[in-house]
Nucleic acid binder design. Structure first.
Lengths: 377, 377
DNA sequence: TGACTGCTCACAAACGATTGTGCTACGTGC
DNA sequence: GCACGTAGCACAATCGTTTGTGAGCAGTCA
């Protein structure tokens, strides 16, 4: 095999199209040890400026990319964050994930995303999978069916930073970022009161979920503040689907003294109620003012447009990442649990304010629009 | 230090609340080598059934979780897939990601998600980041501004499996999963023809994007098939935002011979056109039949509901993962590039069919509804 | 008895990066 | 001339897992 002619001295193997170059390759090329390479790249003080220059130049030349697996294995800390959400659809979770990924990326982290499908067993498996992947921290929004929290204790025993968002474990022993749902319910109801409504009904979601419980609480708070009685006959409980909103409104309209305002704890239910009201010949908002919750895209398409509460999805993601990174940087110890509460924003539209009925020109925001006009070849 | 009393023989260290247990811990406990543990866990033939049982039992007892970093480092193949999308918002990308994560999870893979923000430089950085994380394969939907594809060649040189979806590199040298946009445009236009429309206009998107070019092609194909001339004065080009849809319709209605049908290559533009038509006193669909593209959630909320084309988001994600896993399992070599083309589905609604005008009861699908009624404590 | 097969398992070298420790050479102060 | 500090670098162990090689032993067949 070996050519008799003394050409090509075994070729220093610049790996032209080969796979990735490692620190060992650089070390060989420069005739120094891997220690030097590693320390030069991480700007260690024990490496002289001249050597650092040479190493950096060579690394650039070969387009060296550190193997983060190896680094993480050695250091015991990876540059990976885990997310567990019930699902990646609709408006809320994708937006939060968007915020999370953006913030994490800025800090040099990649995110692994998992869906629990609202199933506790799957949620548990997700956590194990993330543990196995050696993530540096985990962000969780609870599955609807989760009623046992031991799998999270296990994480804490391992000292793994953990932050809940939106759907959180109750109590102040955990790190959490939530929307002030009570405030959202309060703002929404107070707005209806300010519009002169006096019989305000409420479409409430499942009360075992903190978000719906708090929205209901805000509703009652606003009524009490206005000196109005809490009338349970004006509160309908269901699962907040569109058709259930319509059904609920039929119930309410059958009352001897039907409401003139309605705060629905979700936009889908609000939409159903709106459509049912119109079917029954009621004018919205004149005869019945309606508000929803979540600022779904379609609230701008319905006629009238629907007053709703914005949940600050992206801010929630960012805040969650900030909190998680703090824990990671603090080494996990000596960090007392913290809860971040975001203020919701009431978005007033046509379904609750007669004056604003000319909503025919409102623009529905398409995520892609942010980029139109971008330079393209 | 050593206690004189012979109590506690150095304690076999069952790591009660300690961090994670490793194979070495199991090996020590059982008095065998790590080789045996490793092979027992991976069901290697060289380990006897009795030993396998013992190892598995102990692993379960200590809740052993393999360190996938170490495994991947050694094997050179991780259980990670990378996704690069322009952004995680709106309806399309989250749904595709949903499909991807579901399929990947089923195959034992976790996914790392990255956003390019429609920026080629960011897209390049995303790829390097994923390379650095040693993913086993990458799924990409191109950024709008990407006009240079060398960063993808680099991946191929490293032998890293790569699959494009939706926004793909043209040509048959790559693996790709796309919707048959031409077919979508064809079906949509043919549907309008079947409704008796003869002057059908088209709102077309940026023609440098394959998806819009193909939808336009389908439009022309249907017209030709019906023996109608291709009239460029009936085609308006813009960026497909809602307001641009309205503006485009104003142009078309100002024509000496305005259209009686309109195929918009996007739902946002279709919505804008619909609203503009109604502002101008036209009846939809009687005076002007309209169809959109993408099956956005709000197409069910608009009145009339909007006929549109469903893009099979989840199927696209699943198909992309299937293709990628095939490449990974095949070792990368001897795998000839393949393109998967998904058939779009025309969803006929009120904006194009006078008969179906009673759309006041259509239910808007809330992702969360899949889970209502789930068992809850 | 010897060769052979099959089974069960251990040894030790990887994978690629990090890091505590130690070595050399040089300069300085006295 | 000696002790000492410092700059610049190498050695080698280490993270947790995988895997080629081979050792020990029992059973089979000739």
């Amino acid at each position: 095999m070996a050519s008799p002619k003394k050409t090509e001295p075994a070729a220093p193997a610049p790996t032209p199209t080969g796979s990735s170059v490692s620190m060992a390759d650089l070390a060989r090329e420069l005739g120094v040890s891997m220690t030097t390479i590693s320390r030069a790249l991480s700007d260690h003080h024990s490496i002289g400026p001249a050597m650092k220059q040479k190493v950096l130049r060579l690394a650039k030349k070969y387009n060296y990319q550190p193997n983060r697996l190896a680094s993480a294995l050695r250091k015991g800390k990876s540059k990976l964050l885990g997310i567990v959400v019930p699902y990646i659809e609709g408006r809320f979770f994708p937006s939060v994930v968007h915020g999370i990924e953006t913030a994490a990326s800025k800090a040099g982290y990649n995110v692994i995303i998992c869906q629990s499908n609202e199933d506790m067993a799957q949620e548990r498996r997700n956590l194990e999978s993330l543990l196995s992947a050696q993530v540096a921290g985990i962000l969780v929004s609870l599955a609807r069916t989760t009623n046992d929290f031991r799998h999270f204790d296990k994480l804490r025993n391992r000292g793994l930073p953990l932050v809940f968002f939106d759907r959180v474990v109750e109590g102040d022993a955990v790190n959490a970022v939530v929307l002030d749902d009570r405030e959202g319910g309060y703002l929404s109801t107070r707005h209806l009161l300010q519009q002169g409504r006096r019989r305000i009904a409420h479409l409430a979601g499942p009360q075992h979920l903190n978000i719906y419980k708090n929205r209901r609480q805000g509703y009652f708070d606003a009524l009490r503040e206005a000196g109005l009685p809490a009338d349970e006959s004006l509160v309908v409980y269901n699962d907040m689907a569109q058709e259930q909103g319509a059904e609920a409104l039929r119930q309410l309209l059958a009352l001897p003294n039907p409401p003139d305002g309605l705060f629905a704890a979700g936009d889908y239910a609000a939409l159903g109620a709106l459509q049912e009201a119109q079917r029954q010949g009621l004018r919205v908002p004149e005869d019945l003012a309606i508000t929803g919750f979540s600022n779904e895209t379609f609230t701008l398409v319905a006629r009238p447009t629907i007053t709703t509460v914005d949940q600050r999805c992206e801010e929630m993601g960012q805040a969650a990442v900030r909190l998680l990174l703090e824990m990671i940087d603090n080494g996990g110890e000596g960090f007392s649990p913290r809860q971040v509460v975001l203020r919701p924003e009431l978005v007033v539209r046509g379904s609750s304010t007669p004056g604003d009925e000319d909503d025919s020109h409102v623009a529905v925001r398409n995520p892609a629009d942010k980029f139109v006009g971008s330079p393209v070849a």
